[in-house]
């Protein structure tokens, strides 16, 4: 089986896949045991599967593993832990910006990418950056508050 080499959360990984078109999401979840990125639609419409590829947010459900070869991937697990969350995660926890939490991965990854580009976003910029991430529980106002809180941290 063809082998694909890339970095995940700073660690070099080498994975096999029978299909070069296999989306990164399945490799992360099933081969590498990283479950933070979630399957939401498989269509790149909802953002639940968002990871960072070279610091930029991508939909891992429509990103073929082949395309990731030689690149650096960051997942939610790579940011921090419950004991030591990074500033975005800490802001989401402080604002209790989750209900079911299924979208939370994508929200935090999109926020991380936003703050990298725009350290002090306006509420409008925050809304725009998250416009491709869906939340069904209606936690939007808290998520936006968390983005602003993280920017101030």
């Amino acid at each position: 089986m063809p082998k694909y080499e890339f970095r995940v959360n700073g660690r070099a990984v080498s994975v096999n896949s029978w299909d070069p078109g296999q989306p990164l999401l399945y490799i992360l979840r099933n081969t590498l045991g990283l479950h933070a990125a979630k399957f939401g639609c498989g269509l790149g419409q909802c953002g639940a599967c968002t990871v960072l590829l070279e610091g930029k947010p991508v939909r891992s459900c429509v990103t073929p593993v082949q395309q990731v070869t030689g690149h650096a991937v960051t997942t939610l697990e790579g940011l921090g832990t419950p004991e030591k969350p990074d500033r975005v995660q800490a802001a989401f926890i402080a604002e209790q910006a989750a209900q079911c939490g299924y979208c939370t991965n994508g929200m935090i990854m999109a926020t991380t990418a936003l703050l990298h580009q725009t350290p002090h976003p306006t509420p409008g910029e925050a809304k725009h950056a998250l416009s491709g991430n869906l939340c069904r529980c209606g936690t939007h106002t808290r998520i936006l508050a968390a983005v602003i809180r993280a920017a101030k941290a």
Binding site: R29, N30, L34, H35, A36, A37, K38, F39, T75, L76, E77, L79, G80, T81, P82, P85, Q89, F92, I93, Q96, A98, G101, Y102, T104, N105, I108
Partner: peptide
């Protein structure tokens, strides 16, 4: 008081049914 499940949900450590695996499992 803060909910106990939120830190795990914000760090990818909450085990959802979607994440549950058992040995010898098929998809």
């Amino acid at each position: 008081l803060l909910r106990p499940d939120v830190p795990a949900k914000c760090t990818g450590k909450c085990e959802y049914v979607q994440d549950h695996t058992v040995p010898n499992m098929l998809h």
